[in-house]
C-alpha cells in the first residue's frame, strides 16, 4: 500500500514553483484554506522515513506525519530543484540531506519560536471560567 508525504505550500513556496509544472499539482485542502503538494511513496520508503525520526508516524490517512519541519523544508527544496513529485525526491533527501536535517531537527526538539499573535481575548475569557475548583 502506498504512503503519502504532504508538503504545505505557503506564499513563499508557491512563488518558488510558479510557472513550473508543479504549480498545477498544488491541491487545495480544507476548502482552500491550505494548499499542499503530495508525493506518493512505496511502503518501504515510507517506513524508511519513519525510522529516521522518533516522533514520525503514519497517520490514519496513510500520510507520513510528525516529521521535523527541517525534513519538510528539505523535501520542498528538492521538489523545487527536481521539479517533480516522485519517490526519487524523498530518496535524494534521505541520501544527501539527512545529516543536516537531523542536526536542525535536534534544535527543533528543544525550541520552536512562539507565534507573534495577540492572545489577550482568550486570557480575558479565562478570567471568568464557568467551572471553578471544588
Amino acid at each position: 500500500m502506498a504512503k503519502y508525504l504532504g508538503v504545505i505550500i505557503d506564499e513563499k513556496r508557491m512563488a518558488a514553483i510558479k510557472g513550473t509544472p508543479l504549480e498545477e499539482k498544488v491541491e487545495s485542502i480544507f476548502g482552500g484554506a491550505l494548499r499542499r503538494l503530495v508525493i506518493e511513496v512505496p511502503d518501504d520508503l515510507g517506513q524508511k522515513v519513519i525510522d529516521q525520526f522518533t516522533k514520525a508516524r503514519f497517520d490514519a490517512r496513510g500520510f507520513i506525519e510528525e516529521t521535523p519541519a527541517a525534513f519538510k523544508r528539505a523535501i520542498f527544496k528538492r521538489i523545487a530543484e527536481m521539479k517533480e513529485l516522485s519517490a526519487a525526491v524523498v530518496e535524494k533527501v534521505l541520501a544527501e540531506d539527512l545529516d543536516k536535517v537531523k542536526e536542525e531537527a535536534a534544535k527543533e526538539d528543544k525550541e520552536l519560536p512562539v507565534p507573534d499573535i495577540d492572545i489577550s481575548d482568550v486570557l480575558e475569557l479565562q478570567k471568568n471560567p464557568v467551572q471553578k475548583p471544588a
Binding site: F63, T67, P68
Partner: peptide, 17 residues
Amino acid sequence: SRYSGSFIRGLINEGVM
C-alpha cells in the same frame, strides 16, 4: 479533507497557523 491530529501538529511545528 480528512482530519489528522498528526497533520495538525505538523502544521504547528512548521509555524503555520
